[in-house]
Design a protein around this nucleic acid. Structure first.
Lengths: 156, 156
DNA sequence: TATTGTTATACTCTATAACTATA
DNA sequence: TATAGTTATAGAGTATAACAATA
């Protein structure tokens, strides 16, 4: 039971996650985005116009955090917020054409950062890791169902 | 190239790493430890008395961070700091018997937290994930060689 | 001068609580 | 009253820069 303290999966995941967050931030900072803002633009791109409450649930983020993410995005014109006529309390968020363009550029930078982050893994290991993380995400995220139904997780 | 924004391995690793860090912190807080302090005690346990500079390098942490980790540990008597007679600038850190006892209790709590964190993975998947993270750690950590030589990584 | 450890300060990401406006 | 969004504040984890003591 000795010698295992430094190789527990939980601590490894926590610390390597920090390293990953740092690299993604460095990559996105050049595009004036944070990793969470990139994720947000990606979500809007993938699933279209969405209410803020639903966005927060899917991202697993507090509504107050969402506001701090959205404000600069709206100021830069990457995102628009409109009141829902049916329920004027709701704000409906949409990705603008400029936002889509910006997302594409940032996605390129993120891919480069990930290629460097995972340079120690071959392509098969990297895909294996991604699949394991997807399974883990489905059980860890308290809020939302995974985007892929388990039997068809290959085509994610 | 659509629909992949939310499932990139890098972002998954970053976000799940945050979740892991939260769970470990919750587990260790009951023992008045942080995840990093647990890692520090584990390192001292595994490799014995060590200088602060080397500790910081192995953990991939700034020396100033190490100070804030060590101060409470020393105040609680889990760790001792002594000047190196050969080079009086160096502080040599050792795990105390009380620290070893405390580490064992905290390790139990961490194991429970990890079992719950990885409850969505079976034992084979969890070990697979741990091996992938070990490989990744070796290439990501700029500072130190991995504790296991690659050909014999099974017995970690 | 260079190095070890320390202190002070600031930054990133996130959460909690109180507030506004709509329902 | 209850809900959607906002604001203000606080917390954890980390890094940078300036400093003291020692080499």
């Amino acid at each position: 039971m000795l010698e295992e303290h430094r190789t527990s999966a939980g601590l490894l995941l926590a610390l390597l996650g920090q390293a990953a967050m740092r690299r993604l931030r460095d990559a996105h900072t050049a595009h004036h985005l944070s990793p969470r803002q990139f994720q947000l633009l990606g979500l809007l791109h993938d699933q279209g116009t969405t209410g803020q409450q639903e966005l927060g649930q899917v991202m697993g983020v507090d509504p107050s955090v969402l506001v701090t993410l959205l404000n600069p995005l709206e100021a830069d014109g990457y995102v628009s917020r409109q009141r829902d006529p049916a329920d004027r309390r709701r704000h409906v968020v949409a990705l603008s054409p400029a936002g889509a363009t910006h997302l594409a550029a940032a996605a390129h930078a993120q891919r480069a950062a990930e290629d460097e982050l995972f340079s120690g893994l071959d392509q098969a290991q990297r895909e294996q890791l991604r699949q394991l993380l997807l399974v883990l995400q489905a059980s860890v995220q308290p809020g939302q169902a995974s985007p892929c139904s388990p039997p068809a997780a290959d085509q994610c």
